[in-house]
């Protein structure tokens, strides 16, 4: 198969530093304002009020979070709003030591999928854990799958109806 591999040209850092390669630059500016709609709109409004809510489907009896106006299993509209607790269980977590551009972080972030109490089993949301340590080892010592956690909310006057109205979840 060797004849069918094209000898494409790999560039090295020096090629740029020594000005042998020309590039054009364009910033990618995409500006969007997403309509949150009925389900997520209410979800965000309730966050501002310091509450987590889900939607229940009468047929499969699941309580879903993030909430949606349709049940993807039954393909029918969901029926009722359900007030959830702001506590839950860590389904999985990571200790992330780099930012999106691969810069190293001084203090690692701890993203987690958290199953929310009051929703059906396994219904998690993405958020971060806090008050779990400053270093990899500390965090791995304190956090495990199955850890019970509770939301730490922003003070009411600082909330804006966003997922970040919860600052993080901490162990309970």
């Amino acid at each position: 198969m060797e004849p069918w591999v094209y000898p494409s040209i790999a560039l090295k850092q020096e090629d740029f530093e020594e000005g042998r390669i020309r590039t054009t630059r364009t910033p990618l500016r995409g500006e969007y304002a997403w309509d949150a709609g009925v389900a997520v709109g209410r979800f965000l409004a309730e966050l501002k009020a310091g509450r987590l809510v889900g939607r229940r489907c009468r047929v499969c009896r699941r309580v879903m979070v993030p909430p949606r106006m349709f049940c993807e299993q039954c393909f029918r509209p969901t029926d009722t709003w359900v007030l959830l607790q702001d506590t839950g269980t860590v389904l999985t977590f990571s200790v992330c030591t780099v930012a999106w551009d691969m810069r190293r972080l001084e203090v690692p972030e701890v993203p987690a999928v958290i199953a929310i109490d009051g929703a059906s089993p396994g219904m998690g949301i993405l958020h971060k854990l806090g008050e779990v340590g400053q270093t990899n080892d500390e965090i791995l010592d304190r956090v495990h799958i199955g850890l019970r956690v509770q939301a730490v909310w922003k003070p009411p006057h600082q909330r804006e109806g966003a997922i970040t109205d919860i600052l993080y979840f901490r162990p309970v």
Partner: peptide, 26 residues
């Protein structure tokens, strides 16, 4: 990531792999 419920948390791609890998290993 979902622009409303996830992107404001500042996630990066490694998160979801790490979350999945940890769930699988554990």
């Amino acid at each position: 990531f979902d622009p409303t419920t996830e992107r404001p948390l500042g996630p990066n791609l490694l998160w979801i792999f790490a979350l999945e890998m940890n769930a699988y290993m554990t």
